[in-house]
Nucleic acid binder design. Structure first.
Lengths: 138, 138
DNA sequence: CCATTTAGTCAAGTCACTTGACCATATAGT
DNA sequence: ACTATATGGTCAAGTGACTTGACTAAATGG
């Protein structure tokens, strides 16, 4: 229960911060996409795999993010079939807002822990976590 | 990230255990309803508030759970308008399966923690958590 | 006792997904 | 090189869990 509630509180905090930064046309679900797209970008199929949805749904979400100006479709350098989805400067600004909101949500909480407890907590959670599987589907 | 991934792992573990126990017609979302219905039961409106959905949606879910035999609609003892949603014996058996699955998922993990670390973890999480807000909505 | 609130349902609409079909390009076998 | 199959992506239609809106029945409060 505590684990679920804490995760929910974190997502709510990030969502609130991102909205407060002016990105009101995004939902938490988009954040999980941004995680995969930031850096080198990804194809539609890679995004679909990351989000554990069909490639059609991922393509649809990509359409939406392109239309809203967060993502750009570039020709893939090594595969003429594929298109590389990359964050625009607006998309990058949004991820920065999300990072800041996450830090702002967690900081007072992390500060309340004794030094070293945070590290212990991190390692404890990493033992339970399945790397990559982030997005809840229920 | 670790927090979200750990929460996801827990839900996946519970879901897998519940399905393995033969309750294949339920999804994790139903578990959040069972949490509120177990014990004294609840009205449709109380369920809706708990799940943070409209009362129409809650009523719809109640219909489904009644049809599948997990829930019963009893006349409310103190309000002729209301109906009390209560778990059937099948519903109670399902919550027991879920509890067992949760424990089975968490036990090896909890055992790997130093004694006292679990308590520390619990109190750390409870500082971040917002009581009652369990169900992810994204 | 009448006005308003509250519990619940019925009906229709919405939206993020799904399945199914299809085209374009890449890869592998002979 | 040539064909067969696999892969990346989109189009179209269907699904299901939700929503908003309208309504009835019973409770509550001057």
């Amino acid at each position: 229960m505590l684990l679920l509630s804490a995760a929910r509180a974190l997502v709510d905090g990030i969502d609130a911060g991102v909205r407060a930064s002016g990105f009101t046309d995004l939902r938490p679900a988009h954040g999980f996409a941004f995680v995969r797209l930031s850096g080198t970008g990804a194809t539609v199929n890679e995004l679909a795999e990351h989000l554990e949805i069909t490639k059609q749904a991922a393509s649809q979400m990509a359409d939406e993010l392109v239309r809203k100006g967060y993502v750009e479709r570039l020709p893939h350098p090594a595969d003429a079939r594929a298109r590389l989805l990359v964050l625009t400067s607006k998309g990058i600004a949004c991820t920065r807002a999300a990072d800041a909101a996450a830090e702002q949500t967690l900081r007072p909480w992390a500060d309340s822990l004794a030094p070293g407890q945070l590290t212990a907590l991190r390692s404890a959670l990493s033992r339970l976590a399945t790397p990559g599987r982030i997005r809840p589907t229920w």
